[in-house]
Design a binder for these strands. Sequence first.
DNA 1: AATTCGGGGAG
DNA 2: CTCCCAGAATT
Length: 355
Amino acid sequence: MESLDNIAMLAPSIEPNFKKKFWKFLSRWYGENGFKYPWRKSPTPYSVLVSEFMLQQTQAETVVPYFLAWMEKFPDWESLAKAQEKEVLRAWEGLGYYSRARNLHRIAVMLYHERKGELPSDPEELMKFPGIGPYTANAVASLAFGRKTPALDGNVIRVMARLMNINQPIHKKETIRTIFQVVDSLMQGEAEASLFNSALMDFGRAVCKPKYPRCFACVLKEMCKAKQPELLPLRTKIEIEEKKEKIAIIREDDRFWLQQANSNQNRYRGLWLFPYFDPDVMEEKAPLFFLRHSFTRYKILLEVCEASWNKERLKMMPIEGQWVKKKEIFSLPLPSPHRKIWLQLLSKDETNKGP
DNA sequence: AATTCGGGGAG
DNA sequence: CTCCCAGAATT
């Protein structure tokens, strides 16, 4: 088995023949099987950055409708720069990782005021912007500006790790550096940067899949050194933590009590939430329903109840939040579970109104 | 180097 | 149910 060092030393001098063959097979596969995503139709630096932000840790099919709606609402840097954060978060609602939306908005404002609305094309420069890391910087440089630089996402790293039979944890810095050099060398040919990176990512997603790779349909099989079927080092398993949380619905006619997520906390910052039930200042009136939702390592059972303020205690203890009219809740950004709560409440209101 | 940050789709 | 996704920032 080759050591990583050997592969790293080989990288700059991969045989021209190998490079040629690699792209010949891959480009043919891409021509027949590449995905037709809307952000590939007429890419601009803006549309590419929007799509790349949305695609961070989010499956492409999930992103499609969000991307289309976003480009309608915020077609360019200027419209995004002039928007309120509330609108921006509302357009992002349901995608998760909301700091992506806040960072994208910040970038728009920065560009609009400081750079005449133009992104730099150099990956090192791109990395100076909030929310742009190594992958996104190189993706934008290649997909939007045609720079020949490797965009190493999870798919590409997996493909290359198998191709070279790197039996080491693939998230190690040294491993990534090696893969970067190899891909960099592979793409220095006729291949257009945008096509090359897109093809490799699509290929990893569709064929060289994490769990059940379709080796039988692999066009790179003859040059792959992976010892099948042993594939990749397993990831460390994470412990799931189960929690119960109680949400209070406090209403007064057509107004509901909502609070904006604390600005010094990162999760849900800027989004609006129904408050947690707090027995010190609230009284439960009636149970409503349960809702479960899970994310990363948490499995949360949300209990939703109707509640009212305990006015005596409320006087001594200022409570954050404010009354929001029913009609306004539609336009506020809510985390997914809270949006679901809201929709449940609405449908109950409707059925109660029934003839 | 490990954790945090969401949510949904696929198997 | 479990795994994973066109990652980045923070600890």
